[in-house]
Design a protein around this nucleic acid. Structure first.
Lengths: 339, 339
DNA sequence: CTGTTAGCGCTTTCAC
DNA sequence: GTGAAAGCGCTAACAG
């Protein structure tokens, strides 16, 4: 079933059919109506390949996800898909390993799929600095805002990681905690670095010093967090509170704490980051910094579409996270001899 | 940059280039080498649209996911993606609403993307009975095995839901529980129906009767489970154990139980289903029936590829689930006056 | 082994 | 308003 068949059946030419398909104004309403009817009855769908071969571009957006095990991204992807559909685009997800190069991957995708735009979920600032200049399609870096990145076709949407982390740690300090462990990614990860700086800010503001020995390196998955916390415990690190750079990390860490006989929050208070659905249903309910994922998704798509359709310039949008007061943080009850 | 340019630069014809691209044997090794070099230097990638327009099919598989909020599927998708890549296919994910018709969606996708095969994650048996006959591409229904479905191009891979549920409930009974609540989907959902029957089997084998009042209707997401358990509690249902038809449901239910002042497992034992990553890191560690998701993913792709490339007939593969002994089940300590 | 050539289904000038 | 016809980049006979 091709456009030719429809032309034959409806008694007009292929160009007319094409015009109807593309909703061009220069077709007589009755003709259009008739053609539409024939198409419907024949169950005809235009061949995407032929169309794209001709016009040299698709109606799709690609979502490049770095870190498939990160539950926050799973939650987020669903929202992105929905928003894309809303704007008449179809989203294609490309999962990348946590340590893959997202720019290389994007270049490959660009050649193969020719999407109209790309949304990166997470990514490494240095990879962008090194290679993004070669990418010319409208793009959005979601859940990450960095002033070290400045490309005319790269919008950024996310929360201010540093400020958010500051809020998180300040909350712990307000509860009387002064020995605060932090679990998160390496300095090469921009959000991790910012969140760490934010934690540091909060401590310094309170006259405390950030103790490197209380920093545990973890990927954004359960298992890694579990091990990171175990290492911290094995080192006999002393702390009454934990700032985890994601809910998933917090969750894995809590498991390790409980296994070691620590109660949460009685012995160790824990604050997470992200506000994934699970954080509201776990025991104890997670005290966490909630990223407005729905807004981030919507904004990302909106900016992208505006860049694509109206050539709008790239923008940076910083959204406000919110503190979710759960049950995993309580006032500090313990004092250590040594300061 | 097209195949023609490469032909010009390398000094041979387009067909030779095409042969090289498709790794055909009838090209002189030196020629091939040379062409490959030219392609590399020119940074050439074949145009997928042109190729697919010509050969009338793609090298992609579509994964139709019904129930985007089901964490089990998120875990599973990553594995599917990996397996697909392993076989040289690229997987495209299509998220569907929990109550969408997956067959209609598949037909649309088929026309638009022309994938070589489809893998359905979850689905409704009756939808398949009504409409799958129209679908002729190789397909696999993953995580669901039903003898009510018999199509020459539809393989099924999953666990025996009924037997698995029987194991789960038998485990509770072995711990002395006799008042067992069950949380799961409606009878229209095949896995839910089978799991319910399995639960019933186990009870009857033990001389107990399945109490409909102890059945709570829930979707496969946290929120729904939370509410379902609350309804059960509001009705003052008496039970010492819960069989949840998924870990996500178990998780949401536990949250509701704890909020109501019940301890898990001391007051209520809980057994889940699926064995998602989270189940191993939560507190208490979930006692659950682990579906071998990696195997299911691999088998699904393997069967599909075999159907696609060798015209192999559809097969039904039943894999063995495993009981993960966690901490959410303990011996029954409570007796009720009334029997 | 390699080259020539006719389309795949669609869009888009350019005529009418 | 509508139609005829020239490709988009590639594959696959077919011919050599």
């Amino acid at each position: 079933m091709t456009i030719k068949d429809i032309a034959r059946i409806s008694g007009c030419s292929v160009s007319t059919i094409s015009r109807v398909i593309n909703d061009r104004p220069d077709v007589r309403p009755e003709t259009k109506e008739h053609v539409l009817k024939v198409m419907r009855e024949a169950g005809f769908t235009p061949n995407t390949n032929a169309r794209q071969l001709k016009i040299q571009q698709s109606r799709s957006l690609v979502f490049v996800v770095k870190g498939a095990r990160n539950l926050f991204f799973s939650d987020f992807l669903v929202q992105l898909q929905r928003a894309a559909t809303l704007y008449g685009y179809n989203g294609i997800v490309s999962y990348l390993d946590e340590n893959a190069n997202e720019i290389d991957a994007a270049e490959k995708i660009l050649r193969e799929i020719k999407p109209k735009g790309i949304i990166f979920l997470g990514g490494s600032v240095s990879n962008f600095q090194n290679g993004f200049a070669n990418i010319t399609v409208p793009s959005v870096l979601a859940t990450l805002v960095s002033n070290e990145l400045n490309f005319p076709n790269l919008s950024m949407v996310g929360v201010d990681d540093r400020a958010a982390a500051r809020t998180a740690v300040a909350h712990l300090i307000a509860q009387g905690h002064s020995k605060i462990a932090v679990l998160g990614g390496p300095a090469t990860s921009y959000p991790s670095r910012m969140r760490r700086l934010g934690a540091q800010d909060a401590m310094e503001n309170a006259g405390l010093t950030f103790d490197d020995k209380l920093y545990g390196l973890s990927n954004y998955d359960f298992e890694s967090a579990y091990h990171a916390m175990n290492s911290l415990l094995a080192r006999r690190a002393e702390f009454t509170a934990l700032f985890a750079m994601s809910d998933v990390i917090a969750f894995g860490a809590i498991r390790a704490l409980v296994s070691a006989g620590c109660r949460v929050p009685e012995d160790v208070s824990v604050i997470g980051f992200d506000g994934i659905t699970m954080s509201r249903y776990c025991v104890p309910v997670m005290t966490t910094i909630v990223q407005p994922s729905e807004q981030i998704a919507l904004q990302s798509i909106e900016l992208l579409v505006r860049q694509i359709e109206h050539g709008a310039p790239a923008q940076t949008v910083t959204l406000q996270p919110e503190l979710q007061q759960g049950e995993s943080v309580c006032p500090c009850r313990r004092r250590f001899e040594s300061v």
